[in-house]
Write a protein that binds this DNA or RNA. Structure first.
Lengths: 97, 97
DNA sequence: ACTATAAATCGGATTTTATCGATATATGGA
DNA sequence: TCCATATATCGATAAAATCCGATTTATAGT
């Protein structure tokens, strides 16, 4: 768990918002064709208005920081929050700050 | 309390370290001439190896985010952690993340 | 008024980040 | 094999962050 890398990942509001959306997929991604239990499909996040490549980069940043997990199913990649990592980070930060 | 501004302020490891040093001034700044109760003098942080102007900029970033308080006494400026703000941020982040 | 010290600000060089469109890669289906 | 779709990567550009030395500003003391 790299605290500084996570803090950098969280320093862009859109990435924080993506994590937020993932807290309640039913509310934010009900339009998704695939069952939400698999996670949220990468393309779903393009609703934020950024281009596909930019969204992909933000998701990669979150993934590198360990804040989300990814699962490839066919041509799709599904994202879920990594609750353990997020909780561990919050605990660490509470001690560090 | 601007969560995103605070997250940006924390996205640089040196600024996190400065906050850490301020947790225990007796341990890290015993060399300071002024009583530590006043806070830690800005110049003390130049021990990190960065220039005076760079350190000043980092301190300004922390101050703008509200993570530290400043108190001018004569020609010196003393810094203290803003424990209320830090606690409020941690609480907020625990809810948001 | 002059000097000394602390801190902030300025100007500029360099690096990193953010963003896009275009292209490449991976997968699935016909 | 060929085409369509989803995602990742590339190349370019613009913006922001980082850092420094030099200067300015604020304050104190002589």
């Amino acid at each position: 768990m790299d605290r500084d890398e996570i803090l950098k990942a969280l320093s862009h509001p859109m990435r924080v918002e993506i994590l937020n959306w993932l807290k309640d997929p039913k509310e934010h991604f009900s339009s998704q064709e695939h069952p939400l239990e698999m996670g949220v499909c990468a393309s779903q996040f393009e609703r934020c208005g950024l281009s596909q490549s930019t969204v992909s980069a933000h998701l990669a940043t979150l993934s590198r920081a360990g804040l989300v997990t990814t699962r490839r199913v066919g041509q799709w990649v599904f994202y879920k929050r990594n609750e353990e990592a997020i909780a561990a980070f919050l605990k660490q930060l509470s001690q560090d700050l």
